[in-house]
Structure formats: structure tokens, C-alpha cells
Design a protein around this nucleic acid. Structure first.
Lengths: 131, 131
DNA sequence: CTTCTTGCAAATAATTTGCACTCCA
DNA sequence: TGGAGTGCAAATTATTTGCAAGAAG
């Protein structure tokens, strides 16, 4: 994999972001720095990085794929009303994965976990509004 | 929510399917039974059912949303090469969710969990081919 | 050099939406 | 009957792809 300016920039943006980003968001973030960068280049490289396990690809409920550095392993609790997000500390799955690998012969590469619910604010609003 | 022939048919197909289905798949499955059914109706109702928590919506890595009966709670181990799927028995998350609800004030509605890896067959092939 | 990448523009594919008509409650 | 639900076709939106020009090793 060749080392290009565009690739470095894309990875840098994602490293600096606290949240997973969509292709469009990465593209917007880079318009200042790299005015000629093409959106398709962003797509191509995000996909490529995901294949190489450098980034983690996650398709959210809205149908938009978002990416985050693979090493930064985290899961979120997301509100289905306002999309507020709370990070879940710790990951209860490593133990499970070991057992699965043993039982199925799969070599585990990763996992995607998101928990959905209503945050206290939205739960309150809905109760008042009667949905 | 009114009870229509189309809605009943859509739910029935999903109940009978062992695997989560996309809108397109549901539509195809019903073409014989309900020749005039519109694809947009399938989309609208799947989305509606998901809102009502009757179905569980899950957007896979290929960007296609698939739905399954919400009561049938299951998680899968999927091969990133051939898409083979193995069901994971038991769900280790209910305990985690209780703790989260207490800590964050969220009312938990559900979660989505998929574990990725290579199945023994594909792992073998790649070793031979040298990727 | 020569192969991998990029930019651009055009092509896809999944999903959504406007509108007139239909059917359940 | 009245409004929720449907079918159809057109519109969106995210993502992909072909191709000629450009840059990395």
C-alpha cells in the first residue's frame, strides 16, 4: 500500500476525531487542507483501510457507514431519539470470543456492538408529549 | 396501526425465515402470494415495524438493512470472506445492560451485536493462496 | 519506468417520497 | 365515511466505477 498525502490526511482526521466519521464528514473536514481531494478517494481509502483492519467500519441504523481507528476499541449506548452517545467502558466480549473460536474454528477478527435506548432527557419528553 | 393483508404477509414471511431478510428479499418472497404488492410498501412497513419494536433492524456491512422478529433475539458470527453464519447461543449482554441503565439513566431498548472473523474453510483457503 | 492512486464525472443501488386511489375500522 | 395504508413512478442519497492523468517506489 503506497503512502500518499491523501491517505495520511484521512487517517489523521480519524485519529483526531473522538467519534466515528462518515466518508462525507471526513471529506468535509479535509476540504481546507486538501482542496482537490475527491470524495471517491475518501470512499476508496476508507474501504481499503477497513479491509486492512486499520479502520473499523460500522454501518449505523441510518444506513451511513462510519469509520474509526481499529485500535480504539469502543462501544456506545445511543439514544434512538436524539442520537446522544455514551461510551461503554470495558468490553464484555473477549471472553465470549475465545470460547467461540474454540467451538467453531473461526479466527475472530473483531465485532460490532451497539446498545440502543432512550436517554433520560428524551424518555422524559416522550412521556410528557404522549409520543 | 391498521391490520392489512400486506402487513400480515410481511410479518409472516419474516416469522418463517430462519435468517434476517432485506426489503428486497421480503418483496421477492411475496410476489407469488401478493402480486400487486409494492416494494415501497415493504420498505414503509419494515421501517414502521422496527419503530414499534416488532422487528429488529440491522444494517449489515454491505449497507443493506435486514430485519428479523424482535422476539427472536440472536447474534451471529459471520465470516468476512464467504458470509457463512453461525448462531451464537446465549447473549452475554443482559447483565451489562442492567448496569448501564442504572449508571446512565437510559431506558434500554435493544442492542445489535455481530462478531466477524474467518470461518475454518476460508481461513484455510487464504493460507494456501497467500491472499 | 511502471504500477498503484487520484480526480472527475457518470453510473448504481438502496431507500424515500408525492400523490391519487383504496380499504380497514 | 375518514383517515391510515397502498401502488406507482419519480426523486434522493450513499456509494461505486471507468478512465485518463499523476505520483510513489
Amino acid at each position: 500500500m503506497k503512502n500518499t498525502k491523501q491517505r495520511a490526511a484521512i487517517l489523521q482526521v480519524l485519529e483526531e476525531s473522538a467519534d466515528p466519521m462518515s466518508a462525507e464528514e471526513v471529506y468535509q473536514a479535509l476540504h481546507g487542507r486538501e482542496p482537490s481531494l475527491a470524495l471517491s478517494t475518501v470512499y476508496r481509502n476508507l474501504e481499503r483501510f477497513a479491509e486492512e483492519a486499520i479502520l473499523l467500519k460500522d454501518v449505523f441504523g441510518d444506513g451511513v457507514a462510519r469509520y474509526s481507528p481499529a485500535r480504539r476499541h469502543g462501544h456506545y449506548l445511543v439514544c434512538t431519539s436524539c442520537a446522544a452517545r455514551v461510551k461503554i467502558d470495558g468490553c464484555p466480549l473477549h471472553a465470549l470470543e475465545e470460547g467461540l473460536a474454540r467451538d467453531t474454528g473461526f479466527s475472530i477478527e473483531g465485532h460490532s456492538l451497539t446498545i440502543y435506548g432512550k436517554c433520560p432527557l428524551c424518555a422524559g419528553k416522550e412521556r410528557k408529549a404522549g409520543r
